[in-house]
Design a protein around this nucleic acid. Structure first.
Length: 499
RNA sequence: GCCCCCAUCGUCUAGAGGCCUAGGACGCCACCCUUUCAAGGUGGAGAUCACCGGUUCGAAUCCGGUUGGGGGCACCA
């Protein structure tokens, strides 16, 4: 009945495909993964798809893809949605294990640990409402425990199908939680709960217990929201004569208002973060520190380093707010740690085809330290591939003016800029030369360099905030720079021509 | 309502009786660097360690209570 400590360690993650991979599920999966890898145990993926109404294969695909994206791998389980299972304890999808659950439920029925319940959802609702009115705890009233043969005959005549309800032994249950220590519950306060629906579909509390036993799971690490479900599971484990695994309940990830992180108040789908250009390394690092720390002041860790350091004993008990500012910061750190070649590869999918691979590689150094997310890249490089007309149409004439400068003065500056560009042949058209000439021109004009660069920046990139100006000009090429400066001049001078 | 869990700067956290006049990071504010924005550098504000009692020569650290927050009580997972 109790866990024999000599069993080889096996941990698992058990996502439900009722939605795409949730941040919280990802973090729980990560902790399980880190735990299993740290102790050299086996890591299992089991798909909890008993909710036929809400589960989809698309979600299963999303979960598997995003787990892989994070770099999390498992030793047993489906590697691809709908694909072959790997491992000796399969199938690893609950929807493929129904005979097993039926057999286990039959055992419970046989020895009286469970019984048929003929109550309809409407009847149960009514009872619950009644209990609420009387300020009683909302739990099953045990009606079907005391059925007469006549009742039974009538239900059958009505064509009702029974659910199977587990008879919870009214006893105190204690367990030693891996993160919280000794926890005690009184199961006398629990109502008997349904383990198999009318119609034969088994429910979560039951299948999770059956599968953890049959898959030889020794360590159940899950969110704190399951803490008060654990005594139910232990009661089931005992009734079925199973071995009791160790339980560890990790703190919840919270919305800004400290409630359990939800779709309603936060972005919870991992895919969304991925699409916004968060790096999996940053996400993993960030998630790991939501409820755990190595006990030092170090904070940048790869997945492998995390696995080397991770201890369940260092996991916190209190929930942690998901702080996107911190994620953003970490993402920037990871982006900047990439080589230009690596970053070019990662950014490629975020950029339009109009930019070829070599152009991407050339802009990367200009935007690297300006990126928070990869999806920031298109805006930063837009000046490169946007048609000149679009760039020119993108700003108002007065945006060209440096602070305190009039349109007339701006026209003069633009004029000087056009001239200096014209004087350069293609071979000389480099950032260094451009900068030297521009500074000289500014001095000649008696302008501060920054003031002189402002109209050029807007003219050339269409924006007052851009990557470094002269490198941008070099990338753009002499002709396009000239065209854009000319157009800007026309705009500010109301159609007047360049000198 | 009942049961359970939790409680260090706004946020993530260090801290496992004296090293703490509580450290780091994010964010915020200044300044420096600087062609914009970033990045980087330096500095700053920010926590009577929820509160109240106890134990102790000594408590953020141990104990009790209070308050506050969260989670769970489905024929969802």
């Amino acid at each position: 009945m109790t866990d024999d400590e000599t069993r080889p360690i096996r941990a698992r993650m058990a996502p439900s495909p009722t939605g795409p991979l949730h941040i919280g599920t990802a973090r729980t999966s990560l902790y399980n993964y880190l735990f299993a890898r740290h102790v050299g145990g086996t890591y299992v993926l089991r798909i909890e798809d008993t909710d036929l109404a809400r589960g989809t294969v698309e979600n299963e695909q999303d979960i598997i893809d995003n787990l892989h994206w994070l770099g999390i791998t498992w030793d047993e389980g489906p590697q691809v949605a709908g694909g072959e299972d790997i491992g000796p304890f399969g199938p690893y999808r609950q929807s493929h294990r129904w005979e097993l659950y039926a057999a286990e439920a039959a055992k419970l029925l046989e020895d009286g640990s469970a019984y048929h319940c003929w109550c309809t959802p409407e009847e149960l609702d009514e009872v619950r409402r009644q209990q609420e009115r009387n300020h009683e705890p909302p739990r099953y009233n045990g009606r079907c425990l005391r059925l007469t043969n006549a009742d039974l005959a009538q239900f059958e005549a009505e064509g009702r199908k029974p659910a199977i309800r587990f008879r919870v032994p009214p006893e105190k249950v204690t367990f030693d939680d891996l993160v919280r220590g000794e926890v005690e519950f009184d199961n006398a306060l629990l109502g008997d709960f349904v383990i198999v629906r009318a119609g034969g579909v088994p429910l979560y509390h039951f299948v999770v217990v059956v599968d953890d036993e049959k898959m030889n799971i020794t360590h159940v690490i899950r969110g704190e929201d399951h803490l008060s479900n654990t005594p139910k599971h232990i009661a089931l484990i005992r009734a079925l004569g199973y071995r009791e695994p160790r339980f560890g309940h990790i703190p919840l990830i919270l919305n800004a208002d400290r409630s359990k992180m939800s779709k309603r108040k936060s972005q919870t789908a991992m895919t969304a973060y991925r699409e916004q250009g968060y790096l999996p390394e940053a996400m993993v690092n960030f998630l790991a520190f939501l409820g755990w720390s190595p006990g030092t002041e170090e904070e940048i860790f790869s997945l492998d380093e995390l696995a080397g350091r991770f201890e369940l004993g260092q996991v916190h008990k209190a929930g942690a707010v998901f702080d996107q500012d911190r994620l953003d910061h970490l993402n920037g750190v990871y982006i900047r740690s990439l080589t230009d070649e690596q970053l070019a590869l990662r950014i490629r999918p975020f950029l339009p085809d109009a930019l070829d691979d070599s152009a991407v590689l050339r802009v990367v150094p200009l935007i690297k330290e300006r990126l928070v997310r990869l999806s920031d890249a298109p805006e930063l490089v837009a000046f490169l591939h946007e048609p000149d007309e679009a760039v020119i149409a993108g700003y108002l004439p007065e945006e060209l003016n440096a602070k305190g400068k009039s349109a007339a003065e701006t026209a003069i500056a633009l004029d000087a800029a056009a001239q200096l560009v014209q004087e350069l042949d293609d071979a000389d058209f480099s950032a260094d030369v451009l900068e030297a000439r521009s500074r000289a021109a500014a001095e000649q004009l008696g302008w501060k360099p920054g003031d002189f660069f402002k109209p050029i920046r807007v003219a050339v990139t269409g924006r007052s905030v851009s990557p470094p100006l002269f490198s941008s000009m070099e990338l753009l090429g002499r002709d396009r720079v000239l065209a854009r400066i000319g157009a800007a001049h026309a705009k500010v001078a109301g159609g007047g021509s360049l000198a």
